[in-house]
Amino acid sequence: MTETIRIATIGDADAVTALTRSAYAKWVPVIGREPMPMQADHAAMIRDHRVDLLLVGQDLAALVEMVQGDDGLLIENLAVEPKFQKRGYGRKMVAHAEQLAVCAGSAVVRLYTNSQFEENVRLYLSLDYEIEREEPLNGGVLIHMFKHVS
């Protein structure tokens, strides 16, 4: 199947909401509440940030939401549709964000995840992200990570 990455438009908001809710649903029993991305205003996210979509054929498989800041590019949200998980699409979207950061002249990519999302923490560590700090949030711990890119 053909894989295509494109920038999301406001017309994609419902699909982005559905994918995000589906991707994060497995974490609700782990943390006892909906993770913050499930509660986000995805139309505003598309309007205010850059959101790139990975399509496999006609199916929306993954997305990455990015915010360019003075201290580098922040990956605000990375989500992979469950039926497309374990195929390398999360890694592909992180690499895509890193390439965009380099093209924008950013030397650092930042992201964060809940400490209880152990699978995500392992993924980011395997991609050479380092833990910068930990922060208490909503009864849990948010792990801030970064990677130098060039």
Rank of each mutant, 00 (worst) to 15 (best):
D12M: 09
E98I: 06
T9G: 12
L127I: 06
M38H: 01
M1F: 11
P35I: 04
G88I: 14
G72Y: 05
L19S: 07
Q116Y: 07
L55G: 02
M38F: 03
Y89D: 09
A101Q: 02
K83I: 12
L142N: 12
E119N: 10
D14F: 10
D128C: 02
A95N: 10
I75Y: 01
A79C: 12
K83E: 10
R110H: 14
L142Q: 13
A95V: 03
G139L: 11
V56M: 10
L100V: 03
A15C: 04
E3F: 05
R133E: 13
L127Q: 13
V149H: 06
E3R: 14
G105T: 09
A15K: 13
I10E: 15
D70F: 05
A107E: 15
S106D: 14
T9N: 03
K92V: 00
V16K: 03
L55M: 13
F146M: 09
V80T: 15
K86P: 00
N138A: 15
D59H: 13
G72W: 03
V94R: 02
F146W: 09
Y112H: 14
S22I: 04
G90Q: 01
F117H: 13
E76A: 14
E34W: 00
M66K: 03
H42A: 06
L125G: 01
R110S: 02
V30G: 11
V94Y: 02
A62F: 09
G139E: 11
E135F: 02
L78E: 02
Q85L: 09
P29D: 12
A13P: 07
G105S: 11
H144T: 06
Y124K: 05
G90L: 03
V102T: 13
L111P: 02
Q39S: 14
G69L: 02
M36D: 14
Y89Q: 07
D128I: 00
Y89H: 15
E65D: 14
M93Q: 06
E135K: 10
G32Y: 12
Q68H: 13
L142W: 01
I75D: 00
V94E: 04
H144V: 08
L60H: 07
D41H: 08
Y112T: 11
G11I: 06
E134M: 15
V102L: 10
S115Y: 04
F84H: 12
K26V: 14
A95P: 01
G11P: 03
E134Q: 15
A18Y: 09
V16R: 04
R47D: 12
M93E: 06
V108S: 00
C103L: 14
A13L: 06
E81S: 13
R21M: 13
Y129G: 01
E76Y: 06
E76I: 02
R133S: 15
L111H: 04
D14E: 15
A25E: 15
T4Q: 13
I75A: 01
P37Y: 09
L78W: 03
A15W: 04
V16S: 04
H96L: 07
V28A: 10
H42T: 08
E130W: 00
P82K: 10
L137C: 11
Q39K: 15
V67C: 02
G69D: 07
A40V: 00
V51G: 05
F117N: 14
A44V: 08
K83W: 01
A40D: 13
A15H: 11
I46N: 04
E119T: 13
S115R: 14
T9Y: 00
A23G: 08
G57M: 05
L123D: 06
A25D: 15
E76V: 08
L78Y: 05
E130M: 04
M145A: 07
